[in-house]
Design a protein around this nucleic acid. Structure first.
Lengths: 227, 227
DNA sequence: TAGATTGTTAATCGATTAACAATC
DNA sequence: TAGATTGTTAATCGATTAACAATC
């Protein structure tokens, strides 16, 4: 049986298509749910049904990383979950810092689901003197002026930006200067960063607009049907 | 000049591809930024450059909704923004209710960006007696037991679910019973709803895992290069 | 008018699905 | 063994890109 990593050049150096990458966390969640129910085995057909995709796609996706199943049997839930966790970097401790300790920042800082999977928020930062020095989930909010210096002393991999849009680019620059390798950005702006740094956006506003569009479409269809 | 709506069957009844839908809010944001800078015109080339996509794609996307530009000139920023706003249902008042007034729920309830675009949170709900009755951003938190009844008296279009995963399905059922047409779901579960109801998921955990995967990939590439 | 840029049709590229030999 | 289901190759489908006539 193979591991998730280079088994003699199986992994193409770069290319896991983004569309596959986006499904990986869904596999992870589904498998976690099955494991919690102590289900032992699962077939590509069952996984596909839960995700509303095609069984071929499940097998195709997984085969990009290795051969995790058995003909005639399917996949062992625990084994496959373990491999997916390795692929996603879950359960390996990943240090993060969070900048912008407003409502959203605090919600994220208090959301223990991330910590459970090894994503640890090591420090919180803000620019507001009324917030600096306060304690959130046992961590003191620090002055953002000291952000780069802090990171040089206490390296972290991921920086979370929960500031208003106007401050986000400057914060990103400081995170990069501090050696951060990935940015999780909740501010509604496109950040400019060196190409050695990954950015993952969570744009709540965009998500709401997509919902709004779908609603409009659905109403329009209903009207068309009446015609 | 045409409007965004049925100009003699231009809109195919159903099919705006999801990949196009996801870009619409990005066009909206870019155009808003340009409008704020009082830029008058923009070409598909300029828009494409900002989005890191192909100019053809911009024209292709927009042409699904109508003809908004002028040969040799490009697009009038204000006009195109207006049309996109219409397409997305922005600036038309959309009533929403929010269930789950924990940290995340409160963050969203306080996030005024949505209200600015016409998305109004009319009421807040929770099941925790310690939270029920409190005031958040001028709205009283109500008992979730009265959710369906409230909606029958005060209809709304969108329900926002910010509860823990375990409670989400039940809340969804009540929202549907109350006549809600769209659900904005922050709980990490796949909701089962009638197909007349739209669901838009925001899965923060999935987003963080995608970032984690990209980081691992990037590290792996760096190591491969050294070989 | 000449230059620029749209809207649209055709070509290419990539992702999804089908099919099936391998084999547990 | 017979039945089931994988991993993979080939076929299909859909989305992106290129090309260009139309025209501001």
């Amino acid at each position: 049986m193979s591991t998730a990593n280079n088994k003699g050049g199986k992994d193409k150096d770069k290319g896991i298509p983004l569309t596959v990458v986006k499904r990986l966390p869904v596999y992870q969640r589904l498998l976690s749910e099955l494991a919690a129910k102590e289900v032992e085995r699962v077939s590509s057909r069952e996984l596909a049904a839960r995700m509303k995709i095609n069984p071929s796609q499940v097998r195709q996706d997984l085969s990009l990383f290795g051969s995790f199943g058995q003909q005639g049997y399917g996949y062992r839930v625990n084994y496959l979950l373990g491999e997916i966790n390795k692929i996603l970097g879950i359960n390996v401790e990943t240090k993060m810092v969070l900048v912008g300790s407003g409502q959203l920042g605090r919600a994220i800082a208090n959301y223990n689901n991330f910590a459970k999977r090894g994503f640890i928020i090591e420090a919180l930062f803000d620019c507001d003197p009324r917030v600096i020095g306060r304690t959130i989930n046992n961590r003191i909010v620090r002055d953002v002026q000291g952000l780069t210096a802090y990171l040089q002393a206490e390296p972290a991999e991921i920086g979370i930006i929960c500031t208003p849009a106007a401050a986000a680019q400057e914060v990103a620059d400081q995170l990069v200067a501090g050696g951060i390798k990935g940015i999780w950005n909740f501010a509604p702006v496109a950040l400019k960063v060196p190409e050695t740094v990954c950015v993952e956006h969570v744009h709540l506003g965009e998500s709401l607009m997509i919902l709004s569009f779908k609603l409009k479409q659905m109403n329009a269809e209903r009207i068309n049907q009446k015609k």
